[in-house]
Every structure is written in C-alpha cells, then in structure tokens.
Amino acid sequence: MSVKSREIMSIENLNLKFDSTHVLKDVSLSIEKHRVTAIIGPSGSGKSSLLRCLNRMVDLTPTSKTDGAVYFEGGDILSCDCDEVKLRQNIGMVFQKPNPFPRSIYDNVAYGPRLRGVKDRSQLDEIVQRALKGAALWSEVSNRLEDSALELSGGQQQRLCIARSLAVRPQILLMDEPCSALDPAATTRVEDLISQLRNDITVVLVTHNLQQAARASDYTAFLLGGELVEFGETEDIFTNPQDQRTDDYVTGRFG
C-alpha cells in the first residue's frame, strides 16, 4: 500500500509548550487523505492541543510555543510565513460545544463564504444548501432557514456548525469531541455524518469516547501525557495493540 501518496498532512516532532508546561512531546503523525483519524487518550493528554496546532488555533493562547513541523500542501504551517487565515479556510474546525452564531441558520452557514466576498444571493443559496445537505441537516431546516440558529436542538446545532465549516470547502475538518455535549441519538447522527464526510474530505476526530473512535475512524492515535504512544489502523489499535499502555487504555483498565 503506497501510504505516502495518500498522505495529506504530516506532523513531525511536534512540541507544544504553554509557559513551562510541556503539553505535546515529539509527536509525529501522518494524516491520510479521505480517511477519519481519531485521536484518543485520557483527559489532559494533549488531544485537543494537538488538534488546535493543526489550524494554528493554538496561536490564540498567547503563552503557547510550538516547535517541530506540520506539513500541509508542501509547506510547514507552523512557520511564520504561513497565512493562518488561508490555512483555516482549508482546515476547518468543529468544537466541543455547539457554538452557532446568534443569527439565522442561513447566515450561520453563509458566514464563511461571505467573508470570502461571495455576495451573489443565488450563489450563496447554493453553497448553503450544499453545506446543509453535506451535514445531513437540510431536510430538517430547509423551510426555516431564516429562523435563529439558537432555536435548533443541540444535535442540530452541532450539525449546523459542521455545515458552517463545510461551506468554506475545507480539505480537512478537525473535530474536537464533537459529540460530548450531545445525547446518544444525536451522537449517532453525527457519527453517521462523519462516516459520510470521508468521501469528500479528511477528518481528524478528537474523542474521549472509545466506542466512537472504534466505530467512526480508520486510523487511531493514542496520546498519553503529551506523548504519542501508538498510531495505526483503528482495528489494530483496538484488537491488537502493540503497547501495553494502549492495551490498558482501550480495554478500560485506566483513563
């Protein structure tokens, strides 16, 4: 299998520090195109921090300091000359808690394209419809696009946030525990959606829910205390882990 040819992002010896706290230690990881990569690990293991390095959201924390490289489209996104605004158009992010803007459903999805200068109403209509369909929300909201996004249920809000990211047409979608604030039924819908998404884009999914990682991902990385313990195909990680710590974690002996 020619793994290299399908690689869309390569994380090499990534270190992250907040002041003197060493959050990520020499993490190296390869993200495959059109696959779902899950990042698992106990709380505080650096999963979310790792994710936030991949679209430079970590820059919003003034005390952060990164070192190493994350290659995407031939360049190191951690270097200063990378334009993080452009980067975030290519690498979208969905957060732990649904955070729709307090505006209409339509305006939420159209926000990204409008930033980009898309003004034509019919073009926007098309983008909004495509994004909402992509997030499996269209049938539920097509007749009330002008309603406030805050009137949607939690699960719908999260799918709206996914639609909002998709509207920018990212190549990679980073998802930071996207189901942790959702009930089981809504979680199932989002997981189904993640499986569908891989047809068009690449997903990196941080989750503390092991079943979710097992169900929804192709590859799994296990982080512990900021170190990458093991990385491989999801099935191998869960059924035949090479490291004792991985085995302990996936079988529920700790974490």
Binding site: K86, R88, M93, K97, F101, Y111, G112, R164, V168
Partner: peptide, 26 residues
C-alpha cells in the same frame, strides 16, 4: 463567549473581521 470568536477564526476570519462582523454586533 470566547467560543464565538473561535468559531469565526476557525472559518478563516481575520481578527478585524471577527470583531466587526461578530464581536461588536453581539
């Protein structure tokens, strides 16, 4: 909420875009 700023940044908004289109109206 910081999460709204992050949502805007994550969609590729610049800081001034985030403030003008988002933070100030809110």
């Amino acid at each position: 909420p910081q999460s709204y700023r992050e949502a805007a940044y994550a969609l590729g908004a610049t800081r001034s875009q985030t403030i003008v289109t988002h933070v100030l109206p809110y």
